[in-house]
Design a protein around this nucleic acid. Structure first.
Lengths: 158, 158
DNA sequence: TGTGAAGTTCACTATATTCTAAACAAAATA
DNA sequence: TATTTTGTTTAGAATATAGTGAACTTCACA
């Protein structure tokens, strides 16, 4: 892993690394850019021009992406008294839910492999060990991941 | 979730669901197609023409994709005595490793958020609670996920 | 060595995605 | 009501990716 042990010297370095990793998880890069920036910006709420200037993205990108992120509950709008502009900030706990969903995808495979197994059994004569192995893994995760995450929530009052 | 509770009636249904989910995890769809097929095919090893016909993909796609999958250790070549053709089969335990890596990505974020935190502290005056929350989550996962998976391996002698 | 079967490579097409510019809408203020 | 500020929409450009056909290579075996 080419990942340095040092602290970042620029906020943009953090945003880059963060967004690349979010992209690797299967999401648009701009998601990670906005999320990453909203994690380290000052103040925690940011306007359209704030996002446009700091991330070098267009107004339309800000509009479209924030709309999607609002729908998915990742961020929320903030209105400041006496100000016309909308500000956006990370919704509390949203990133944890985001990662939780990420892992739930893995768990979906439990259901899929289960049905695949039933098909293979119905058909007969098919070697089941391949599917059984991966299915039992997902079954195990489906069983234990939620309680592991719950344990974290309890520890941190979330 | 539009996922039926029934068993699939066609192998292609399983392959479709499986490959769509793999795609959602950020991988090329054809990965999921080949992996899914290799999980339920009979026999477990498949030739070039087998894959081309059952998945409706070209010879070139089989060649390119299997090369990548071999490099990443997902599948392996099988040679049958007296046969010139190469066969491919799922490498034992490969899918579990694949999913493990998937979760390790999530853990990479522990390192990234840690460095982001250090930057924010160095800069001073920045609200740290946002990053601290997500970092502690990843730290928690980085600590507990490996041992959870190890527990599975122990239970199943893998 | 010649032949044909098996697999690889690569340039290109098709497709999907991302992002933007620019026109448009809404709403506050003058 | 006219003007300005703020945000939305949408058609299309730019880019990336996936997938293919066809030429090419390799190699077993006659």
């Amino acid at each position: 892993m080419g990942m340095s042990e040092n602290t970042y010297s620029e906020k943009s370095d953090f945003v880059d690394d963060f967004s690349l990793k979010i992209e690797e998880l299967g999401h648009p890069r701009i998601y990670g850019q906005i999320l990453g920036w909203l994690l380290i910006c000052d103040p925690p709420h940011q306007s359209f021009p704030d996002l446009m200037e700091n991330l070098n993205i267009s107004k339309a990108s800000v509009s479209n992406t924030t709309r999607m992120m609002l729908e998915r509950g990742l961020i929320e709008k903030v209105r400041l008294k006496g100000e016309r502009q909308i500000y956006f900030k990370i919704k509390k706990g949203a990133l944890i839910e985001f990662m939780e969903k990420q892992m739930a995808l893995t768990i979906d495979l439990q259901e899929i492999t289960k049905k695949g197994l039933e098909l293979s059994k119905k058909e007969g004569g098919i070697d089941l060990t391949r599917l059984e192995r991966i299915h039992s893994f997902h079954q195990f995760l489906a069983q234990h991941l939620p309680e592991l995450i719950q344990k974290f929530r309890n520890q941190h009052n979330l």
